[in-house]
Nucleic acid binder design. Sequence first.
RNA 1: GGAGAGGUGUCUGAGUGGACGAAAGAGAUGGUCUUGAAAACCAUUAAGGACGCAAGUUCUUCGUGAGUUCGAAUCUCACCCUCUCCGCCA
Length: 425
Amino acid sequence: MLDIKFIRENPSVVQRAAKDKGIAIEIDHVLEIDAKCKELFIAVQKLREERNKFSKAASNAVDNEKNKYIEEGKRVKNELEIKEHALKSVEEELHEWLLKIPNLPKANVRVGKDESENEVIRKHMLPSPFSFTPKDHLDLGEGLDIIDVKRAAKVSGTRFAYLKNEGALLEFALVQLVLEVLTSEGFTPIIPPVLIHKEITEGLGYWQAGGNEDYYNLNDPEEKKELYLVGTAEHSIVPMHKDEIFQKKELPKRYVGFSSAFRREAGSYGKDTRGILRVHQFDKVEMVSFVTEEDDDKEHEYLLSLEEKLFQLLEIPYQVVKMCTGDLGFPIARKYDIEAWMPGQGKYREVTSTSTTTDFQARRLNIKYQDGNEKKYSHILNGTAFAIGRTIIAILENYQQEDGSVVVPEALRKYVGKSVIKPKE
RNA sequence: GGAGAGGUGUCUGAGUGGACGAAAGAGAUGGUCUUGAAAACCAUUAAGGACGCAAGUUCUUCGUGAGUUCGAAUCUCACCCUCUCCGCCA
């Protein structure tokens, strides 16, 4: 959510930003409702003041005097009731409209209509050529007996998978590696809930533009509660601090969370259907930072540098992509993706993503910090440390040998307990 | 799942219809005293918003929401949360 004062003072900036993101908003209408709201608000305050005066007078007065004040009070009460109802409905209307206004892209983000205009800002390691035709992760995974999508389909349907044998070990290895790296950087390790209230999902602001069809809704009529499965650990880590105020010295506050992530992948029918690149359920290690306003940019670069460090440790070729305005999500002001080289597809594919939401989520969730006498909205950033499934894909495809075996990256050997994964007979 | 108790300011805790934004204590801050410290004493100590150059005036907030009333921390209803005991359970 943007500050209504900012919108009042800079309507054209807001309009422009939404347009750059490809989101339609009606700024004039918002300003109109805001004006109406303010007018009613002042009227209501005046009436309340009157009401308070009469009730005070009534409590001090005696007998016949008293009745007079009570009568006056009744009159004001009736008038106030009408105005308060009107105000409430206008306030709600304004709030709904405000929720539809996306966060502003940062100034150094390129204006562009969609992913075709994203910029590759650097590459690390060039893909090395294979002396044979590389396989894709599913062929490799099935040969090694570490990925099983066929049985998963029997039990859960398409877009599910079993990771087994060294596949499961690789997952635990990646988790251990990343926890070691990030806890030594001072991140607080955390395992969050994966079910969250509907109201929380609104605070995060991801579902505003396209609705919530990307996430699973567990609507239990018995419980009278509507819970959603998280799409990423960020969804339950960020709102941990809802309605809280940090001391400035507590910031930056950084979490590294491990959780399963659930996505319906509605609207991606027929896309990436092979293997485990795009599945309904996967595990992920996620970073979340709460920082001061002035540290926002620095923190974003820091999160990106950690993501790069992790892929450098795995010695996998990657490129860093900076998203253009048209490819930024609703609450996001700037976003970088790391795309790892996937030889089986002959393409770079997204493996991590880091975003700053500036104070946009903080405003919706009411997360502040105390800076001297001032309370400011904290800036909230997130970044993938390892999206495990996709990282495993990158490992399998980059480390494959001609005989279908896969060398374990040096950094993971001590956790996996072996240096090569061999095809099963 | 069954039975009880409770949610008040930074904290403890009083307050059951009207000078209550809220007693008292603790804590914190400033001061007096002291060579210094402690103790003692004195003073200050909620947040957010509206109007105003300012002094200031005013509105809202006692778990949340609705209601009763001229007036609600206090009464009514619903919901949320916490605690204790019993049962069940990885």
